[in-house]
């Protein structure tokens, strides 16, 4: 299982190829990416994902969205002046 099988699936099957338990696997993939699953559960999820075109796509998408959120949003730094003001007011 792996890249070759997915290539076959990709070539032979329509883009719309569905997984009968797609929602179930999406939720498990999310729990895994959120670090809420055990190694054993991860292996169970990855085994399915690796052999299912649809779920592999979803897995890829979930990772891409997380990376975009983490890396593409602007993070503002609080100015030193404002930090000083906060310090003064909080400790007053």
């Amino acid at each position: 299982m792996g890249a070759f099988v997915r290539w076959i699936q990709k070539t032979m099957m329509s883009k719309k190829a569905r997984c009968p338990k797609e929602e179930y696997w999406i939720e498990l993939v999310r729990l895994m990416l959120d670090g809420q699953t055990t190694d054993e559960e991860n292996a169970y999820v990855l085994k399915h994902v690796d052999g299912c075109y649809r779920c592999y796509d979803n897995f890829d998408l979930e990772k891409a969205i997380r990376e975009a959120l983490k890396n593409k949003l602007i993070n503002i730094k609080v100015s030193d002046a404002f930090i000083a003001e906060i310090n003064r007011k909080a400790k007053a």
């Binding site: 796509d57 891409a64 975009a68 949003l73 602007i74």
Partner: peptide, 10 residues
Amino acid sequence: RSETVKGMLG
């Protein structure tokens, strides 16, 4: 598609 998300701007 994940590629679409990867190409999106902040």
